[in-house]
Simulated assay, not measured.
Amino acid sequence: QKGMDIRPQIAGRPTGVLHGLTSNFHIFLASPTWKRELEALSVEDKVAAMGRPDIRAALLSEDSPLIRAATSAPVGGQVAGLDGLLWRIFPLGERPNYEPDREGSVAGMAEAAGVSPVEMMYDLLLRDGGKELFYQPLGGYQTYNFDFFRKNMQHPNVLFGLSDGGAHCGVIADAGMPTFILTHWARDRVKGEQFPLEFLVRKLTSDTARAYGLNDRGRIAPGLLADLNVIDFDALRLFRPEAIHDLPAGGRRLVQRAEGYRYTVKSGQVTFENGQHTGALPGGLVRGGREAVILPLAAE
């Protein structure tokens, strides 16, 4: 009402905690047998140990603080217990699906297989040599679709943001959010309407640059920075997040690879080619806004 330019942010999907043997969290993490027998093992040795009947029986039967906490956690506004929570946790697989059906949840798969949800979670943790991860959308996923996100992503003042690409890096891997927005919302979504690719590109580039006063980038025009991605859109895809240990003292973080980016160009220099860094480092610290220097087009 006072004329302020209010720019809400929304992510392209709910930020989610990733459960798994390669992340910093899963429901058996605080079990006595886990802490005593498995905690210090490599992922490969954990998978081997969890395949033993005695370890399996112990972990499935023990009283765990995490399981107790999950049992009292509200799901959809109600306390539904661990089994209820597992209707909102989904194995990602090698080609992640972030808008899955109810039947694709851990509890849904357990129901189809005739086993308990906790047993299904245990068995899925061992899949792909212990590399499987599980997506638990924060803020609920009661409708099992992203219609809420689509409605709000359309608003002209909304910026695409809120993806957690640098914090909680052992349990969240959202740095691939721009790639997800392009692939899911312009090409792959089957549970509702998509968006035109041109709309998404504008929101991710010029709209965001303009909102932060970076008027020298975000568009292709004479006088602007030559910041470009050359993308093979049909080949563009995200892989399942994976753990690497390159933080100080060998600390773990989850990263998510993408393919389909043929070239990334910064100020006219190719910095990445087919996902490989070229060694070029043309970027620099940006302080405050940047005005464009518009050059006249040369005469034909």
Rank of each mutant, 00 (worst) to 15 (best):
G218K: 05
M153A: 11
S105Y: 09
D63I: 03
V286Y: 04
I55G: 11
A107C: 09
H19C: 02
N24V: 03
R88W: 01
A235L: 04
L29Y: 04
L85T: 03
T22H: 03
L60Y: 06
E259D: 13
V43P: 06
P156E: 15
L159H: 09
D164M: 09
Y261N: 07
G268N: 13
F239A: 15
R88I: 00
G260M: 08
L86T: 05
E132W: 05
L66A: 04
A258W: 00
R68C: 04
F239G: 08
L247W: 02
G12E: 06
Q136D: 04
T143A: 15
F28I: 02
V43Q: 12
V158S: 09
R262P: 04
E39D: 14
Q154I: 06
T15L: 11
A107D: 07
T71M: 08
T205L: 10
R56P: 02
G288E: 13
H245A: 12
L85C: 07
I27C: 08
Q78L: 08
R7G: 07
L29K: 12
M4Y: 14
K203A: 13
A211F: 07
D174K: 01
G279K: 08
S206E: 13
L82W: 01
A58K: 12
T143H: 15
P53I: 09
I244Q: 13
G275P: 08
V201D: 12
E259A: 11
Y122A: 10
V270A: 12
G81Y: 07
E39G: 00
L295K: 14
E94P: 00
T205G: 12
V118Y: 00
L159I: 05
A249M: 13
G275D: 07
G275I: 04
W34Y: 15
G213C: 10
H155R: 14
G170W: 01
A73L: 14
S267W: 01
A30G: 03
R56A: 08
L228Y: 06
L236K: 06
E39N: 10
R95D: 13
D63W: 01
S31G: 15
P53D: 13
T183M: 04
L238T: 09
P248C: 08
T71R: 12
G250Q: 14
E259P: 02
D45Q: 15
P65T: 07
A175D: 11
N152A: 05
V265N: 12
E37G: 02
G279A: 11
K131C: 01
G108Q: 05
D54G: 04
G84E: 06
